[in-house]
């Protein structure tokens, strides 16, 4: 599965530019699903029909990652940029970005070595090695993603875009491994989550699920002097109870707990004091959908080096697979 993760995280796909990730996923899952389509926002929606008697489930993992977008190229060829999603300013200076056309840029700061403070966004620029707008390989409107290779630390995996390619990997792996299921499962690889869970809004409207589950990363509280949070790397996937965007339907939460306990999968319960996931949008679709979220604990979220625990990932695959194979017994 590590090879799948590596392939996914190293593919270029900032929010709104998910085409390459989508093509990669489409190719991998085709033999395992009954039908698939791409909607107006670029969500990939694949259906695997069940044996009957189950529910219509929507499983969502988002394809997009955070990035930057060029808004201006000055006379000397330096590019100014805007943010695509929740990029953190502390991670920028000296970092590299990769554009869709293959161009690479270095992020510079007007006050480099002159100030000890945190940069203001307006003080940052991208140096693509150009000397004027004419010889710049990028144009206004071009979108860049962090450039950072995948690293296998053995127990732990590090890369940019773990948020949420690791979720995509978990969903793909569960799809490939799953046995017979009573449920019609819609596997939705969503677009533009980082811009406000936009892909999930429209895909949930189309799918009309009876139950929805997002698979996404969550924060942890186990690094030195971290803000207290009862989620750690290596203690299993997390079952979300609440985040800033939603309260998980208690019946969905209980279903996830019951399956985890029955299968002996270690898990953690997650209360996140900020953030939100696609589950929020699924819950609010049409007349309402019971929705939950299976979270993969992740350190340094929204930095170019997001770290997950491989056992947590495998636990998430198993839990998702067992959920898909089971019959959600609660009423909706």
């Amino acid at each position: 599965m590590k090879e799948l993760v590596k392939q996914l995280v190293e593919t270029y796909g900032p929010a709104g530019q998910e085409g390459r990730v989508r093509a990669l996923i489409e190719g991998i899952i085709r033999p395992y699903v009954d039908a698939s389509r791409v909607d107006a926002l670029g969500n990939l929606i694949a259906l695997k029909r069940g044996s009957g008697g189950g529910k219509r489930l929507m499983i969502a993992a988002h394809m997009d990652e955070i990035g930057v977008v060029v808004t201006h190229i000055d006379k000397k060829g330096f590019a100014r940029f805007g943010r695509v999603g929740g990029v953190q300013v502390q991670t920028m200076v000296g970092g590299r970005v990769l554009f869709g056309n293959g161009a690479v840029g270095v992020i510079g700061w007007e006050k480099w070595l002159q100030s000890r403070g945190v940069p203001a966004w307006e003080e940052l620029f991208i140096d693509v090695g150009a000397t004027s707008p004419d010889d710049s390989p990028v144009r206004v409107g071009d979108v860049g993603a962090f450039l950072r290779p995948f690293v296998d630390l053995g127990k732990r995996l590090v890369s940019k875009a773990m948020d949420d390619r690791i979720g995509c990997a978990v969903v793909i792996q569960a799809l490939m491994e799953m046995k017979e299921s009573p449920n019609d499962v819609y596997f939705v690889f969503t677009a533009q989550e980082e811009l406000g869970t936009r892909g999930a809004v429209v895909s949930a409207f189309g799918v009309e699920p009876e139950v929805g589950i997002a698979v996404d990363v969550t924060h942890i509280g186990d690094t030195p002097e971290a803000r207290p949070m009862a989620v750690s790397l290596g203690k299993g996937p997390a079952i979300k109870v609440m985040d800033a965007g939603m309260v998980v339907n208690p019946a969905v939460k209980q279903w996830m707990i019951d399956v985890a306990e029955k299968e002996g999968i270690p898990y953690q319960l997650e209360v996140l004091e900020f953030g939100g996931t696609d589950a929020r949008s699924i819950q609010l679709s049409k007349a309402g959908v019971p929705a939950g979220c299976l979270s993969i604990p992740c350190r340094y979220v929204h930095s170019p080096s997001e770290m997950v625990d491989y056992e947590d990932v495998q636990g998430a695959v198993k839990l998702l697979r067992k959920l898909l194979e089971s019959s959600p017994s609660f009423s909706s």
Binding site: A40, H72, G82, V84, V202, F205, G206
Partner: peptide
């Protein structure tokens, strides 16, 4: 040339199954 402001497109593109 800026990621600033919002317009009616923001609401329209999220309508129904996406526009």
């Amino acid at each position: 040339r800026a990621v600033a402001g919002g317009t009616d497109s923001g609401a329209i593109h999220l309508s129904r199954e996406g526009v």
